[in-house]
């Protein structure tokens, strides 16, 4: 590897990382992207990095990013490369975070307890989270539920990422919180976990799952499950042991959101 004159070491959620580049502008852009991706959880450190990211541009690849010596993204369009890096970094931090378990999930607070809505991108969880917030729920995240060892949820409150529903999927963001709010937010115990997928005009028919079924169903959304399965299962057990776990198809978010909140009000 060629020597990089510009570099900086950081720590994010307990994961030491290093950014390197021969180009000061690219390094600056990487730091800015990382800060946004990790909602400011990026502090300089002297710790030896576990993950080194190199940012560059050359005639052969265009703009590129390497992770521990392997190219992870390359394209003429620099913006696209950084967009991918933004997603990639969040996922890698979530996978390797030593003491928190990142779940790909929407999360809102209801009466001092968290509702988790696990789901992948394009599963409609942002739409549902936004609808629940409009109905009075407290916004925690539309992307990750970050769980501590006691199974409590810490906020990961980026602006909600929405896409238009006209078939063209234009991304836009909705600000539902401010930084002052975030600092006040305490971790919440999980009151309920909802596994749901969209089906037009589907009635709300919640099926209760057992804790073991809940853990099994949430594993595909659990980022560190491959890296740290024992700790992940231990934390998921904490979550599912005390939570209401339900599965249901859902119709349009406004109608479903109201019914869901009425249902949870009785049981949570």
């Amino acid at each position: 590897m060629t020597s990089a004159p510009y570099s900086q070491n950081f720590i994010s959620f307990g994961v030491p990382i290093r950014f390197e580049s021969r180009n000061a502008r690219l390094l600056e852009k990487a730091i800015k992207t990382a800060n946004k991706a990790l909602i400011g959880n990026l502090r300089p450190t002297q710790k030896r990095p576990d993950h080194t990211f190199v940012f560059g541009r050359n005639k052969e690849l265009g703009a590129f990013v390497e992770h521990n010596g392997a190219i992870i993204a390359e394209n003429e369009i620099e913006r696209g490369v950084f967009k991918y890096f933004d997603s990639y970094l969040r996922v890698r931090i979530g996978e390797y975070c030593p003491d928190r378990v990142f779940i790909h999930s929407g999360a809102v607070g209801i009466n001092g307890k968290a509702l988790l809505i696990p789901g992948n991108s394009f599963s409609g969880k942002s739409t549902l989270v936004l609808e629940l917030v409009k109905l009075g729920a407290e916004y925690l995240s539309d992307e990750f539920a970050i769980l501590d060892k006691r199974g409590r949820v810490h906020p990961y409150a980026r602006p909600i990422n929405m896409r238009t529903t006209d078939g063209k999927y234009r991304p836009y963001t909705v600000n539902v919180t401010d930084k002052a709010d975030l600092k006040k937010k305490k971790p919440l115990p999980v009151g309920a976990v909802l596994f749901t997928s969209y089906k037009e005009n589907a009635p709300f028919r919640p099926k209760r799952l057992t804790p073991a079924e809940g853990i099994m169903t949430i594993t595909p959304y659990t980022l560190p499950i491959l890296v740290n399965p024992a700790y992940s299962i231990q934390v998921l057990h904490e979550v599912m042991n005390g939570a209401l776990i339900v599965q249901s198809k859902r119709t349009h978010a406004p109608r479903f959101g109201e019914k869901l909140l009425q249902y949870l009000a009785k049981l949570m």
């Binding site: 696209g80 967009k83 997603s87 890698r92 996978e95 991304p171 594993t219 959304y221």
Partner: peptide, 14 residues
Amino acid sequence: APQSALAATSCNCS
């Protein structure tokens, strides 16, 4: 579980 945690993410152009 997916073979990679990245399976849950997506690219997008803007």
